[in-house]
């Protein structure tokens, strides 16, 4: 564990109750978590995977998805394994927690190309396809994308403060940016 303190890394000041008292929930690969109590959602080790942070500012309900592949299309696995299916599942879960689906906004991060594969690379890298899938499904659902940090060749870890909507993106070695 690297002792990065990103609580001062540009988080909006209008969030007095955030962070110190907020609980932290871990989101694994092919998982999503939803919070309506300002919890901080954390996921790590995004390589070619894509993190999609969703939030309805009016209700304060937020969700974070860590998806591996663009779309299920009959492939095995839970909806959260896939960007398209996972975005829908996460928005549904947020609606159940009190979010208005029409008000949801998104930030996305991840989808690096860390390794160039020889085999089966004719349709672009998994990362690129994950981003394209996210942009398409979010557009289709009428969800605006307020920030993105995707591509490149470095892995990322994410902390999504559902209380403020700030998405902290950290790289190996400790560098952090806030979307």
């Amino acid at each position: 564990m690297s002792p990065i303190d990103s609580s001062s890394a540009g988080a909006p000041s209008a969030s007095p109750a955030s962070d110190q008292s907020a609980s932290r929930l871990k989101v694994g690969l092919s998982e999503a978590a939803v919070a309506d109590d300002g919890a901080v959602l954390v996921t790590s080790g995004l390589g070619s995977c894509l993190g999609v942070a969703l939030r309805d500012p009016s209700s304060g309900v937020g969700g974070l998805l860590h998806a591996m592949l663009p779309v299920a299309d009959g492939r095995p696995g839970v909806p959260e394994k896939f960007v398209v299916d996972g975005v829908d599942a996460t928005i549904d879960a947020m609606a159940e927690a009190g979010a208005a689906p029409g008000e949801v906004r998104a930030k996305i991060a991840g989808a690096a190309e860390m390794i160039e594969f020889n085999a089966g690379g004719d349709d672009g890298s998994v990362g690129d396809r994950n981003v394209a899938a996210a942009e398409a499904i979010l557009r289709e659902r009428g969800v605006p994308v307020d920030g993105a940090d995707t591509g490149g060749n470095r892995g990322r870890s994410l902390r999504f403060d559902t209380g403020t909507g700030a998405l902290h993106v950290s790289y190996a070695g400790g560098e952090t940016i806030v979307l």
């Binding site: 690969l29 790590s44 080790g45 995004l46 390589g47 070619s48 995977c49 591996m68 592949l69 492939r75 095995p76 696995g77 394994k81 690096a112 190309e113 860390m114 390794i115 160039e116 594969f117 089966g120 890298s125 998994v126 990362g127 470095r154 892995g155 990322r156 870890s157 190996a172």
Partner: peptide, 22 residues
């Protein structure tokens, strides 16, 4: 291919590819 990053992030593109079929 040289890699220098978080261990879990290094593995994620590999499992993404395996995960398409298994």
């Amino acid at each position: 291919q040289f890699v220098h990053d978080m261990g879990s992030a290094v593995m994620s593109p590999l499992v993404s590819r395996l995960g398409q079929t298994q």
